[in-house]
């Protein structure tokens, strides 16, 4: 998949296998893509799809077993030292700070890993903190910060060296809505104003939809669709059908036998006593047939409506299942 303008990240036929108990486990299976400068590029997929593996290869923590990848023109396998000068990374799962020193001192320390003069580093830390709403908490010890502010500090750390390319792995996981929103605004600002390339691995569809210029949907190590979120959603051709069904059900297998149903995902709301089914349909007739199929099973369709497709429905249309069901399939 191609990018417009200067290419920051280029990946060609990238493969990564891990030793398994029997045969090797393929985490990445021939991924190719190009990401342009100043672009926020989303890598979307369920857990175990290969997102983190790709991020780890691009950030020089893992070697590919096939293909190649370049960051700002430097080969990640053969020129890791050069790549490391122009990148930074952060993960939502990391703690990434020394507990008994303040957030400010932590950030200063990490800036020193890049040889940034102290005066410049301090100015940059203040700017980043201002943007992320962290200023008031800079002098608190790291352990005393709430999860949200710790994550803001982690994001500030990832930008402290003014990297050309930033890799973020689930950066807003477990955060409250307001914190997640402010981090997203910050990321958009960084890409737009400072022309930084941001590669964002996530399984949060709303996040990817909200901030990414382009998205690659990845499943079982392969890119199964790529483009702008709008293009991907438009590509479905028909809007999704949402049905609220009573009593709650764990399976809606009857839908997979309906012609014109490309896929579906279901969730149960015990408090409301119903299941909500998102169905991707090819035509209006398929939507009607899906509703009839549910009714034939003796279930009551409490409400149904059509809506604009989301990225989740794009994934469902391509794979036949949602992220959650896909992850459960892999466990089985």
């Amino acid at each position: 998949m191609a990018s417009k303008g200067t290419v920051s990240v280029e990946v060609s036929d990238l493969r990564r296998e891990f030793k398994g108990k029997g045969s090797p486990v393929v985490a990445l299976d021939g991924v190719s893509l190009k990401v342009g400068q100043g672009e926020i590029f989303g890598v979307l997929g369920p857990n175990g799809a290969g997102k983190t593996t790709m991020i780890r290869i691009l950030s020089t923590l893992l070697l590919p077993t096939g293909g190649w990848a370049k960051v700002m023109g430097f080969d990640v396998e053969h020129e890791p030292e050069k790549v490391r000068r122009v990148i930074n990374m952060a993960s939502g799962a990391e703690k990434a700070g020394y507990d008994f020193i303040s957030a400010k001192k932590n950030l200063w320390f990490f800036s020193q890993l890049y040889g940034i003069p102290t005066a410049t580093a301090e100015k940059r830390i203040m700017e980043l903190s201002e943007m992320l709403g962290l200023t008031k908490y800079l002098d608190r010890k790291f352990y005393a910060l709430s999860t949200g502010y710790r994550q803001r500090a982690t994001i500030a750390r990832a930008f402290v060296n003014e990297p050309k390319v930033v890799f973020l792995d689930e950066p807003t996981i477990g955060l409250d809505v307001m914190t997640a929103r402010s981090i997203r605004e910050f990321l958009k600002e960084q890409a737009r104003r400072s022309e930084r390339t941001i590669i964002l691995a996530s399984h949060n569809m709303a996040e990817v939809e909200a901030i990414c210029d382009r998205v690659a949907i990845i499943d079982k190590g392969k890119i199964i669709a790529a483009g702008t979120p709008e293009d991907l959603m438009r590509s479905l051709g028909a809007p999704a059908l949402v049905m609220e069904v009573s009593p709650p059900q764990s399976g809606f297998e009857m839908l997979s036998r309906v012609e014109g149903v490309k896929g579906f995902t279901a969730s149960t709301e015990e408090e409301r006593g119903l299941s909500t089914v998102h169905i991707v349909v090819e035509t209006d007739a398929a939507a009607r047939a899906a509703e009839d199929a549910v009714k034939r099973e003796g279930l009551k369709v409490v409400a149904s409506w059509r809506k604009q497709a989301t990225l989740e429905e794009v994934f469902v249309a391509l794979v036949g299942r949602g992220f959650k069901e896909r992850e459960e399939q892999d466990v089985v």
Binding site: T60, E94, A96, Q112, L113, Y114, G115, N161
Partner: peptide
């Protein structure tokens, strides 16, 4: 990981 991905 942060140490390793830095040039230090």
């Amino acid at each position: 990981e942060i140490y390793l991905t830095s040039p230090a």
